[in-house]
Write a protein that binds this DNA or RNA. Sequence first.
RNA 1: GCGCCCUUAGCUCAGUUGGAUAGAGCAACAGCCUUCUAAGCUGUGGGUCGGUGGUUCGAAUCCACCAGGGCGCGCCA
Length: 595
Amino acid sequence: MSQNLFSEMRDHVVAALTAIVPDLSPEVLARVEVSPTRDPAHGDMATNAAMVAAKPAGQNPRALAQALAETLAGLPLLAQAEPAGPGFVNLRLSTDALLGQVPVILQAGESYGDSRFGGGTRVNVEYVSANPTGPMHIGHCRGAVVGDALAAVMAKAGFAVTTEYYINDAGGQVQALGWASYWRYLQAAGSTITPEEFEAQTPTGLQYRGDYLIPVGEALFREFGTSLAGPDLGLAEPSLWFETVRDRALTMMLVEIREDLALLGVQQKVFSSEAALLASGAADRVIGELEAKGLIYEGVLEPPKGKTPDDWEPRPQTLFRATDFGDDFDRPLRKSDGSNTYFANDIAYHADKIARGADILIDVLGADHGGYVSRMKAVVKAVSDGRVPLEVVLCQIVHVMRGGQPVRMSKRAGTFVTLRDLLDEVGRDAVRFTMLMRKSDAQMEFDLDQAVAQTRENPVFYVQYAHARCRSVLRAAVEQLGADAMTPDALAGADLSALDDAQEIALIRALMNWPRLIEGAAAAREPHRVAFYLYDLASEFHMLWNKGRDDTTLRFLQADDAAGTRARLALVTATATVIRSGLQVLGVTPAEEMR
RNA sequence: GCGCCCUUAGCUCAGUUGGAUAGAGCAACAGCCUUCUAAGCUGUGGGUCGGUGGUUCGAAUCCACCAGGGCGCGCCA
């Protein structure tokens, strides 16, 4: 039997529809859906086939639904098919088909829900890509979790996924990091120079004053002594120290970022350095290609309407014809000092991702990069001659709440919430799950109190608790039945006819939604659907558990009913399996017990 | 001023790409708790889906305009 009963049924529906109305276009057939019903009274599934085909077929939707229902009624999979509402066909699975999904899950294990939906399409998901100029904070965290889970969802759905982190180690902010690190170095060496005196002698100012660079300065002092300092521990000639200091600082920042990511359970496969890409000449090469396509020119931009910057003056720039590809205006590629803009280098980076083999590029970005999206999409279209789409998942701001009050993320006020602080306080599982309990393009409040709560209010607890309850039952059952009777294979052979309570059936219906949900979440690039699904699934399981409190005949372990116990253990094992499968996608630990 | 995102119950949010009577948790109210794990459970009330038009068999979902919130708007990344 198929893992995905919905797609299997859809094939039957399309076949039946085509038999009744032979000449439907592929476009019409593509709109045929078989979806779960909201109301169990409507059966297990419903199809809109009659409604989408009614107009092209020139038939009344109700009449078509009637004909479709009669054709489908003969399927062994179905117990009932009947027209309903404006032209739905409600489908009730046969008991065999419904219960049959349990051994399918047991045999598939955690691979249940894997699909070939993606068809091996090569997808490159880039996320985090924080500047290596400081520790990761909560703003980065959401993108990290969303990107990681999106990659996992798409991989499960049959895409060939690569994950990637772009290291912005080439721009002016890295210059500033070098200077700020040098200041900390001088301090470590015992210099008494004030920030103001130091800043006056730098080209970048002293942008990064956080304590996190103190260890960098100390490390530099340990390694080099006072040899990088000037006379009287003042500033030395930059050519004598700058590259060394900058590179040491970058390395240390990157180590820290990777540690933070590891603590969060995120590990991109590829780390790409902007500086290395630049050094290889990739940026000049790509700009040359665009030039050859006639997409680059020297021109002067109009000032933005309504809000002209104070220092606006018309000036000629090297521009990319983004407007040819749907952007609002053409975009500059060079700064006045002749170096590349961030955009220019990012073109090279995206071209590089394509050249390494990608059919779809996905960037997970913070909302503050929203204005960057249209130009990037435009240029990816240009570079790939329209072959590779760039999709952008924007993550909106996270407001951290404690005790109902917002926690301000202010470096000056010292309430800067780093990722590590957050992980220390609430733990990896709660951070990841909570970040995925919102659509990524909606602002979210992260309630610290809720994230650590051991109650139903906390979704991650609720889901992990469901898994722990399953495992608890199974542990108890081993003592009663012996381990041999408890393997998935053994349970897959169990007679399941004892599973006839409405709540048991509701749980099975929830389980069989999993493969369909994966495909939907992957197609929509919405990993949060997995978190919500798991919450719903956990809810169905808890409801069954609770029902057994009032009605002892519904408890999983029945001392005097071996067959019924085996059937229920099969269901419990299947439930635990799907929860694990889902948590695996989200990168959350399935708890064995919670005490 | 322009562009993008958002607005759903008192609060925080879902809503399966246009489907049937719009859902969940919290809060409120009413019951229940000697147990396979009560760090609870069951039930009830609660809505002009920001507003107004439009598209069609059918709209929270698509389009237009308006209101409110967020982000951005020529060499920061």
